[in-house]
Amino acid sequence: MSRTARIRLFWAAAVVFAVAYAAACTGLPRFGTLAHPYATRAVAAALHQRTANVVSSVNFDQRAFDTLGEESILFAAVLGTIVLLRHARDERTGRPRPGRVLPSTRLLGMVLLPVTLLTGVYIVAHGQLSPGGGFQGGVILATGLHLAYVAADYRVLKRIRPLAFLDAADAAGAGAFAALGLAGLVAGGAYLQNVLPLGTFGQLSSGGLVPVVNAAVGVEVGAGVIVLLAFFLDQAVEVRSPEEHGTGGGG
């Protein structure tokens, strides 16, 4: 198909799509409607489980199986990236040049790095109480670590990033989630049933299984995203194709 034909075809179809979708929107309850049957039940269930953050209760307790699937996707994507961005037979790695970093940048990075890591841990730990949780905290931890790349250089980042361990931690986090679900079966309930003591409402230990699963997710996401970024960085900075003569380099 020529480019013009393709775009014309798309526009013809898009007009139909747009008209039908707009017609469908007129049938929706108006924006801000008060009737949400599932939501009402979910809030009641979360309070019953003594989980102050209802979203966490839905994510890690009521609809925990969705989250198990979601974490498996992340796990699969990390494995997939390891496979797709592995070093091919005809590639070799080059040594990245040590980059020069402005002292002010280095200072900023050195200050920000611990702050970011602490923030990440805090957000993971308080997932069942306040906004945040394993996923958000994990991503912040992972991106925070890469401040080392900004502040120092690629080799420093490589030193503080034990990939082999993180790779296993990613798998272990995903496995812990799936295995914690078995606790419910062992206790005579259903898979992923929240069988731990629920604790006091509003406390760090409240919510039963929720903080535990949350922590497992935090470990998995943090480790997984670091591995993911590591393989992309590795390709962008280190891997050389045979014909490649450019020096590239880090920093």
């Binding site: 949400h36 599932y38 939501a39 979910a42 809030v43 979360a46 209802v54 979203v55 209760s57 839905v58 994510n59 609809r63 969705d66 989250t67 699937g69 979601e70 996923f135």
Partner: peptide
């Protein structure tokens, strides 16, 4: 909260 959990996923 349900749609928020869905959006997170």
């Amino acid at each position: 909260p349900v749609v928020q959990a869905l959006a997170l996923t």
